[in-house]
Amino acid sequence: MTEGRTIFLVDDDHDFLELEKSILESRGYRVIPFSDPQAALAALNACAPQERPALVVTDLMMKALDSGFSFTRALKSDPRFSDIPVIIVTAVSSQKGFDFHPRTPADLAAMNAEAFFDKPVSPEALLAKVEELLK
């Protein structure tokens, strides 16, 4: 069973934070919301190993356009957190003609993420992906 496990949720949009929190909590996950990736990183660093989240869901365009990318890079480059699966949920799918949509697993790896969703993500799709990644 994957229920009861902790998920860090990072998004600077109040609505998405609450929305995705509701979706995840409906399956019994324990969700800790952050509106700033810096705060999430600080919390991660402060966590005892057994309290670390089982999964991270993050937005991309927060304070700066690439703040989501720097956040996932920081996670994956730290051996303590590199095993934690990351799901990106974002409204930014292209910027100045540059398409963010990952098409291959290599694209996803380059984003330091295990999954990518456009906003708004459907509750079923998000829950299915979380379940799959936590198996």
């Binding site: 949009d13 609505d15 998405f16 929305l19 509701s22 979706i23 409204a91 906003k119 708004p120 993500v121 459907s122 509750p123």
Partner: peptide, 9 residues
């Protein structure tokens, strides 16, 4: 997207 998300939910 937020509106759509809420209504979806």
């Amino acid at each position: 997207a937020a509106t759509e998300g809420w209504l979806n939910l």
